[in-house]
Design a binder for these strands. Structure first.
Lengths: 348, 348
DNA sequence: AGCCGTACAGCAAGCGCTTTCTATGTATAC
DNA sequence: GTATACATAGAAAGCGCTTGCTGTACGGCT
C-alpha cells in the first residue's frame, strides 16, 4: 500500500537502517549512498511514518500551545509568536516541529483533556498561555499533570500565567496586578474618585490580579470602594456593553470606567456613547492589553500594553531549549501604561 | 520507566489484549474484568502511548487546521469554530481528537511543509482556511499534496478557499467576488464615482476575487477605473493607514475608500482622520469580513459580513464525517452587506 | 609487512500498542 | 449427556521505524 522505509531501502539497494540514517542525518553516510537514497525517496514519493518514528525513537516533534480562546487576538498573538519560535516549518531551529494550538475555550475539563492528549502524544513541549482557572480541584489536577509532563521530559512553559509551584514548569508571568494598579492610579491622578470596574470572569487569575491592582490603587489613595462599582462579565465586547449599562444604572455619577481588557473597554465605549455620554469629557475609559485595534477606537484607548509577542517568542524559545529559563524558573513581565485619548480629567 | 499497557495488564491480572480492549471499548469485556482494568489504570496513572497506538491501529486522532495568520481574528474565529466541531475534548463527537492549528504565516513553503507534517502524522482530516496563494508551482504542489492526502484516507476540507479541482477536497468557498461587488455597488449607489481601493497582498485568491468584484461593479456602472486608485498592501491596519495616505496623495478627490478587509479599513479611517477628513462626510470607508470590532469603529464600519463561525463549524462537521459534503463537493458561502455609518453620500 | 584506527553499512532487537485467530468455559438445545 | 452456540480471554504476529552492536574494507602507521 503506502511506501515504507523498506521499499525505499530496496530501491536504493541499501538497508533500512541506512535510509533511516540518511533521513535523520545523525550518522555518517557516504555521499554517493546518500544520493542514491534521496533519489529513491524522491522517486517513490516516500513520506516518513510519524507515529512509527515517534514510537521507535521515543520522542515526538509535537509542541502543544494551550489557549483559552483562539478567536481572541490576545491569545492569537501569543500563540503566533510561540509558534514562530518553535521552529515549525520556516523557523530557524533544526528539527521540524509541529506546533499545535489547542483551544480550551476556558473550560477546565478541556484544559485537562488536552494536556492528557499531549501527554499521550509524548509532546516535546507544552506552552500554556493566559490566565489560569482557579477552581480548587482543577488547579491541583493541572499542577499534577504538569508535574507528570515535566517528569516525562516534556518542557512546560507558562506564558502570561502565574507560576505553578513544584511542577518544574517555567513561568513567564504578566504583572497584571501592577498594571491594574498603574492604570487606576493614572485615573486617580487625573482627579477621578468614582471609578467603575468591569472585571473578567470570576475564578480566573487574570481577572483577580487586575482587580486586586485596581483596589490596591484605590486603597493607596484612601478611596473607599463602593460595592456597586464593580461587576463581573466575560472578556468580550458585548459583556463590556452590558456591564457598563449596569454600572451606569447603579451609579450615574461615575466619572471613569476601567475594563478588564480592551474588548470590554470597547463595549463600554459603545454603551457610554449610546447613553449620550462623551468620552472622556463625561466618562473616562481604560482598557488592558493594548491589542492592535485599541489605538483605532475613537478616542484611542488608554490601556496597559502587554508585550504579548515578545513574551510568546521568549516562551517559545525556552520551550525549544534555545534560551535559558529565567533564574528560579520565574520571570515577571511588566506592562506599560499607554495614556491616550479615552482618559481625561473628570467633569465638573 | 513509564507505565505501559503491559504493566496495567499485569496489575489487573489480565492480558495486554484485554486492557487494550477495555480502553478502546470496541470488544466485549466482562464488567468485572473491565472494572479491574480501569482500577489498575487509575492506580498506575497510566496514559496510553499515542504513537504506538497510532502505529498499530494505522489511524490517528489528529486533525489539522491550516491558517494564514493565527493572530488575525478572521482565522481565529474560523479555527475556533472548526475545532469546536472536531469534537476535541468537550465536543460531542465520540473519539477524542486533537485539533491542531498550524500557522502558515502566508508563506507558501510553510503551507506545504505543514501538509507534509500532517501527512506524516497520518492526520484524520485537514481543514485549510482562508485564501489560497497563487504561485503557479506552489498551487500545483499543494494540489498534488491534497490529492495524496485524500488518497491516503485523510478528509480534506477547504473553508473560505476556492475549490481545488481533481483533488477530492471538499470546498466551502466564500463569495468574495460577489461581496466585493455588492459593497462597491452600494457606494456607487450613494453617488460615489471616485473610489480608491486598498487590496490585500498579491498572489492571493481572496485579494484577487474581492478586487475583481469591485471592478465588476465599476464596469457595470460605466465607471472607468483610474490606475492610481488602487494599491496593494498587507491585511493589517498599518498597511491600510499607509495605503490611504498614498491614495490621498495620488488623488485627493477620492470620495470613498474600499479596503481589503476590516483591519485595513480601520487603518484607513485613522489615516483619513489624521489627514483632517471626516468619515463619511468627506470620505466614505468600507471594509470586508465584519469582524467583531468593526461595529465599534466610529463611525461603525460598512462592510460585508462573512459567516466565519458558521462556515468553520460546517467545515469541521464535514471533516468529521458528521455532515454530508455539498453536492459536487463545492458550496458557495455568500456574504451579507452591512451598511453602517462609515459610508454616506459623497461631499459636494 | 603487520597492526590498528576510521569510515561505512547491515543485522536484528525492540518501541508499545492493536487485532486476528485460537482456546476455554458456560449456557442452550436436542 | 452430548453437541452447538455464545461470550470472553489470551497468544502472538505484526505496525514501520530507530539504534546498539557487529562486521568489513581501506588507509596510515610503526
Amino acid at each position: 500500500m503506502t511506501v515504507t522505509l523498506a521499499d525505499v531501502a530496496a530501491r536504493a539497494q541499501v538497508s533500512p537502517a541506512t535510509v533511516s540514517r540518511v533521513l535523520n542525518g545523525n550518522y555518517p553516510v557516504a555521499a554517493t549512498t546518500r544520493d542514491r537514497v534521496l533519489k529513491a525517496v524522491d522517486e517513490l514519493d516516500y513520506v516518513l511514518n510519524g507515529p512509527a518514528s515517534a514510537l521507535a525513537a521515543a520522542t515526538s516533534d509535537l509542541v502543544g500551545i494551550l489557549v483559552n480562546d483562539i478567536a481572541d487576538p490576545f491569545f492569537g498573538i501569543m500563540a503566533g509568536a510561540v509558534q514562530s519560535e518553535i521552529g515549525g516549518p520556516g523557523g530557524r531551529a533544526g528539527g521540524e516541529r509541529l506546533a499545535v494550538v489547542c483551544n480550551t475555550g476556558g473550560v477546565p475539563e478541556r484544559e485537562l483533556t488536552y494536556l492528557t492528549l499531549l501527554q499521550r502524544q509524548r509532546a516535546a513541549a507544552v506552552v500554556l498561555t493566559g490566565g489560569a482557572m482557579e477552581y480548587g480541584a482543577h488547579q491541583a489536577a493541572v499542577a499534577t499533570k504538569l508535574r507528570k509532563l515535566v517528569e516525562a521530559g516534556t518542557r512546560v512553559v507558562l506564558c502570561g500565567r502565574p507560576p505553578a509551584p513544584d511542577t518544574g514548569a517555567i513561568a513567564l508571568t504578566f504583572d497584571n496586578r501592577g498594571g491594574g494598579r498603574q492604570l487606576t492610579e493614572h485615573l486617580i491622578g487625573l482627579g477621578h474618585r468614582r471609578l467603575g470596574y468591569i472585571a473578567g470572569p470570576e475564578e480566573r487569575t487574570t481577572t483577580r490580579h487586575r482587580l486586586e491592582g485596581h483596589r490596591a490603587a484605590l486603597a493607596a489613595h484612601g478611596i473607599e470602594e463602593d460595592p456597586r462599582w464593580s461587576v463581573h462579565g466575560r472578556y468580550d465586547r458585548q459583556s463590556g456593553y452590558e456591564a457598563t449599562l449596569e454600572l451606569l444604572r447603579r451609579d450615574p455619577e461615575l466619572t471613569a470606567v476601567v475594563a478588564a481588557n480592551d474588548s470590554v473597554a470597547l463595549g463600554a465605549c459603545a454603551a457610554l456613547r449610546d447613553s449620550g455620554l462623551r468620552i472622556p469629557d463625561d466618562v473616562s475609559v481604560a482598557g488592558f492589553d493594548d491589542l492592535p485595534f485599541s489605538i483605532d477606537a475613537v478616542p484611542a484607548l488608554t490601556t496597559v500594553r502587554l508585550p504579548l509577542a515578545e513574551a510568546g517568542a521568549r516562551a517559545g524559545r525556552i520551550a525549544m531549549g534555545r534560551e535559558d529559563a529565567p533564574p528560579g524558573g520565574i520571570a515577571t513581565v511588566r506592562g506599560e501604561l499607554m495614556v491616550r485619548g479615552s482618559s481625561g480629567v473628570p467633569r465638573g
